[in-house]
Amino acid sequence: MADPSALADSPGADSPAAEYAIRTRDLNLWYGTFQALFDVDLDIKDGIITSLIGPSGCGKSTLLRSINRIIDRLGYVRTTGSIEVLGHDVQRDDVELVQVRKQVGMVFQRPNPLPLSIRDNVIFGYRLHSGEKISKDRRDEIVEDALQQVLLWDQVKDRLGSPATALSLEEQQKLCIARLLPVKPALLLMDEPCSALDPEATSAVEELIWELRGRFTIVIVTHNMAQARRASDECVFMLMGKVIEHSPTERMFVTPTAQETSDYIEGRYG
């Protein structure tokens, strides 16, 4: 289970809100003058997999990327409202982004292993946060453990020193998940993690995500209805920067409440 007390110095961590890993209130976001999110109020439960679905440009990636504030990289993004991650408002100016990103791991659309060896990729995040020298044995232990968890160990154990960029896309994406694990984040954000993969690789990575269920709070953006249905506990349907519906996956796909949701699910647009 994700451990909400990881940021224990906060008063919010012990409040009833702790059953939610992420809560947004009145979240508005602009790219320059273009408004991409409108008054998003969202409560994402701790320890489950939540899918963000909706047509292209509906703001689901934007929402995901503002949770760990990686969206700030663009430099022309402005937000109002709040995003609480494990009880901390990450929108505040004095928040330490390094600490936020330690709690919130991210998997990107295109696998983006660093131009280092497989081993160094896995240990990269851990090295950043541990702040001390790691013994060789400890390092090998961490690397093996992480690669075991993503079911990659057997394929790569004999070539840990070779470049990660030489792996297949499926292996790269698994590696990108593996490198998050030693940091021990509470949340994993996944931005269409299978969109660059072929069907077989997709099902392998999906299986892996399902394996991780329960150990992390997972938020996954996907275009793929079937994937959302297969691989998530709850679904959030977004349209034009607004959250239209948020309900358990089963209910959303069987009895959606909003007309827009059922239109989308049935493939009338998107």
Partner: peptide, 22 residues
């Protein structure tokens, strides 16, 4: 590639760490 910087930053690297290590 931008993706390298983004990946490192998302892992919690500071700007200097991104430059120096990646």
């Amino acid at each position: 590639p931008e993706g390298f910087r983004e990946a490192a930053e998302a892992l919690g690297a500071t700007r200097w760490q991104v430059i120096f290590k990646v």
